[in-house]
């Protein structure tokens, strides 16, 4: 009886092992490594020359990227963090309800995010839902992302037109220089969008070189600040478009609270301007 039971148990275990092996197909460690390296290298090769390079994957960068890629424009988003979405995951004070004002809720309709009207003209939606759908929509439209990569410098071409970006891995800048003497790489782009938020890293780099002057964002005239950000979205320097809160830094517009409508609409306007510039700089 005991022998029979042992034999039965052995058979069951053998079956389980066979079954388990069938859940995942066989792949060696070297296969996994080769897959990562070859695909990433292939993507990098393809995206060393793009139509639009966007610095920052916050709401305005994502929206601009999504709209551009939807029209078949080769778009690469460079994000210094591991995660995409910037501050769009949370509203104010670490609370993950985000607010948007009319008419920006129409973008939520487009990407299929539920929302409700809190008071007339003010809409609320869960940050994780809105942010994840915005990222998904950008990916679905064909945007390529390079996360954990940091903007390092600009590429300037004839007549000082911005025509690319120099990037490096984020950890490189986080470690002491003595052990991270790693040279960056450059990517060419017809148009660069600075969607890096208040830091406005691309604009600041131009300022460092004395090519542009920025007053920085200020508490200048708070009323209609969202309108002002959208209205000022545009080409701040030949080949460079600013969107989102980078607009505030570039033009000295008022700082805003955690309302995201203008970020999305600014991204959309930035994409429209980029389409025109691509034709212009062809």
């Amino acid at each position: 009886m005991q022998i029979k039971l042992n034999l039965y148990t052995t058979l069951i275990l053998d079956y389980a092992v066979i079954k388990m092996a069938k859940i995942f197909s066989k792949a060696s460690e070297s296969d996994v490594t080769r897959a990562i390296v070859s695909q990433f290298a292939s993507d990098m090769c393809e995206f060393t020359e793009v139509d639009v390079a966007i610095i920052g994957a916050g709401p305005s960068g994502l929206q601009a990227a999504s709209d551009l890629a939807k029209d078949g424009i080769k778009t690469l988003v460079i994000e210094r963090n591991n995660y995409l979405g910037g501050g769009f995951w949370i509203g104010g004070f670490l609370m993950n309800t985000v607010t948007l004002r009319d008419p920006s809720q129409k973008i939520l309709d487009e990407i299929g995010v539920p929302y409700k009207e809190y008071v007339k003209g003010l809409y609320i939606t869960p940050g994780p839902h809105a942010c994840s759908k915005l990222i998904a929509s950008a990916c679905d439209n064909g945007v390529k992302f390079l996360n954990m990569a940091k903007f390092d410098d600009i590429v300037l071409r004839e007549k000082n037109r911005v025509s690319g970006v120099v990037i490096n891995w984020t950890p490189v800048s986080a470690l002491p220089r003595e052990i991270t003497c790693v040279d960056p790489v450059a990517l060419e782009a017809k148009v660069v969008i600075d969607a890096s938020g208040h830091d406005a890293v691309v604009v600041k780099k131009l300022e460092e070189r004395g090519l542009i002057k920025t007053p920085g964002f200020g508490a200048m005239w708070v009323e209609k600040s969202e309108d002002a950000v959208v209205e000022h979205t545009g080409e701040a320097y030949p080949g460079l478009i600013v969107t989102g809160m980078a607009v505030s830094t570039t033009y000295g517009l008022p700082r805003m609270g955690p309302t995201f409508g203008s970020m999305l609409l600014s991204g959309r306007k930035g994409a429209e301007i980029a389409k025109k510039l691509i034709r212009k700089y062809k």
Partner: peptide
């Protein structure tokens, strides 16, 4: 006043405002 009158971006925006004849919010 900030010395940015020759800034490419500010000029672009101002041209847009003049062309559109729309109110200019957020700026004094």
């Amino acid at each position: 006043c900030a010395d940015v009158h020759d800034s490419y971006g500010v000029l672009n925006i101002e041209k847009e405002f003049i062309g559109s004849r729309q109110p200019v919010y957020g700026v004094m």
